[in-house]
Design a protein around this nucleic acid. Structure first.
Length: 456
RNA sequence: GGCCCCGUGACCGAGUGGUUAGGUAACGGACUGCAAAUCCGUCUACACCAGUUCAAAUCUGGUCGGGGCCUCCA
């Protein structure tokens, strides 16, 4: 039997925190909804993927083997529309944007998923699932489309609280739709002229939006996998429909995913980021605006499940915040040796915060406490433990290479020249060296043990 | 209209029936030739109105305000 970990996660399905109990002891299977690659990544994507990255790192730190699967929805209306606009092959366009997203996420130190299944590589399993749903009466075919029949699924709405009858009341009737019920959704869509399509018993067509996640998650991770993730906005309809079709497919009492852990959405100046509002910040722009660790700190200092409001002022605050951590922990040993009392206490606080639904803000608050204590006492074990804790959350302290191997020697030389000037009380020359170096991005700091330099 | 979140000090942001969260900024002090970094100190908040309770920012009801989903979305 598998046993519970000390870590609990809030399960959207049960609306409460539950101890995480791996399906297979020592292993966690995690499926995270990925992107539809038709455009550049934005900081909303970054927040989501960084959140699951942190979760994964924490689980791995607890000794679990995590299998992280993230889908790529590489065939979809938006891809086709964009491809037609620029006269490119849709599959090529999707593939390019996917490759780009992997490169950009790597710059944020987001660990790559173990598998990136693509819809276009899983057409057969998808069609098998659609066929089985139809055979069992959960789906019906209409003029080449196939729809899931919501009325056949008794507990439809259990994830989001949206009931079919309520959906019908507010539903917009879309002309030309052949569905029996506005709440029904497409499993398979008939091909339009010039679109990529695959042959099927229903004629040429392509998968509907939700079916790919069901088919690929079940194929790769199997029934009852541990964690299904994605941003909160995906709860309805995407995840609701995934559950409906998957559990109807699995049959009596079948469980698709055990824990649904959703991260909060990102806002910009109080409103959701969208192209129409013009408040769209791409990940590549973001990385120009601040280093990766600053973004990680900004993202993780709001609870992963809460909405996060991005403002320029906040970014500035977190640049300063990160500097406080970096100034201290750069001086701490990289390797944790024997723990001191303070280090043990810190470690317990840090772990307890993460155990409670991955409360990263509280865990980082413990790090700030440790930083203050380390600055005061110089307790190296505490400093090293705090540094290690930040690394568990995916922060990095590697020193940037400055210039070539000659540069540090030249800087030492300048520091010595400046020191001689200061000893002659020629502060004008000394300050000039410091100011000019600062303009070049090198900060000099006079400490009791002499002068040190660092990159600003 | 339906489903669901949220309103915490100058700003950000955890928490939750009785305890200083934490960070940023600001101000004062220490250290320093001056900076920077660091340390010490100051700034004691939970939208509003009722109620429950020995005790509520935390529970209940209402009011006001903001946001998300219901159409593509991480």
């Amino acid at each position: 039997m598998s046993q519970s970990l000390s870590l609990s996660l809030y399960n959207t399905l049960s609306r409460q925190k539950e101890p995480l109990t791996p399906r297979v002891e020592g292993e966690i299977s995690m499926y995270v909804c990925g992107v539809t690659p038709y455009d550049k990544l934005h900081i909303g994507h970054a927040r989501a993927f960084l959140t699951y990255d942190a979760l994964r790192r924490v689980l791995e730190n607890r000794g679990l083997r995590v299998l992280h699967v993230q889908n790529v929805t590489d065939i979809d209306d938006k891809i086709i529309i964009r491809a037609n606009e620029i006269g490119q092959d849709p599959l090529k366009l999707a593939s390019n944007y996917h490759e780009e997203s992997l490169r950009e996420l790597a710059l944020l130190d987001v660990l790559p998923a173990h598998q990136y299944p693509r819809v276009t590589g899983h057409i057969n399993p998808i069609l098998d699932m659609v066929a089985k749903l139809e055979e069992r009466g959960y789906a019906y075919a209409r003029e080449g489309d196939v729809f899931f029949d919501v009325s056949k699924d008794e507990d439809y709405g259990k994830l989001s609280g949206q009931k079919p009858e309520e959906l019908r009341a507010g539903a917009r009737i879309i002309p030309g739709e052949t569905k029996d019920d506005p709440a029904d959704f497409a499993l398979w869509k008939v091909a339009k002229e010039g679109e990529p399509s695959w042959p099927s018993r229903y004629g040429n067509g392509r998968p509907g939006w939700h079916i790919e996640c069901s088919a690929m998650a079940l194929e790769i991770l199997g029934e009852g996998f541990d964690i299904h993730g994605g941003a909160r906005e995906l709860v309805f309809p995407h995840h609701e429909n995934e559950i409906a079709q998957s559990e109807s497919f699995l049959g009596d009492g079948g469980t698709f995913a055990k824990t649904w852990w959703h991260c909060g959405e990102l806002r910009v100046d109080g409103a959701k980021m969208s192209k129409s509002l013009g408040n769209f910040i791409t990940l590549s722009d973001a990385l120009e605006m601040a280093p990766k660790n600053v973004w990680r700190l900004l993202f993780l200092q709001t609870h992963p499940r809460s909405p996060l409001d991005y403002t320029e002022e906040k970014l500035l605050q977190f640049k300063n915040s990160w500097n406080r951590i970096k100034n201290a922990l750069d001086k701490a040993p990289a390797e944790v040796g024997e723990l001191s009392e303070g280090a043990t206490r810190f470690q317990a606080q840090f772990n307890a915060a993460l155990d409670d639904d991955l409360n990263t803000p509280e865990a980082i608050a413990a790090v700030f406490d440790a930083v203050s204590e380390f600055n005061r006492s110089g307790d190296e074990a505490l400093g090293a433990t705090a540094r290690n804790a930040m690394e568990v959350l995916g922060f990095s302290f590697e020193t940037e290479q400055v210039g070539d191997e000659l540069t540090p020697h030249l800087l030492e030389l300048l520091i010595q020249v400046r020191q001689s000037a200061r000893e002659r009380r020629d502060f004008k020359t000394g300050d000039q060296i410091r100011v000019r170096l600062n303009e070049l991005g090198i900060a000099l700091e006079d400490g009791v043990d002499g002068t040190t330099w660092k990159r600003v």
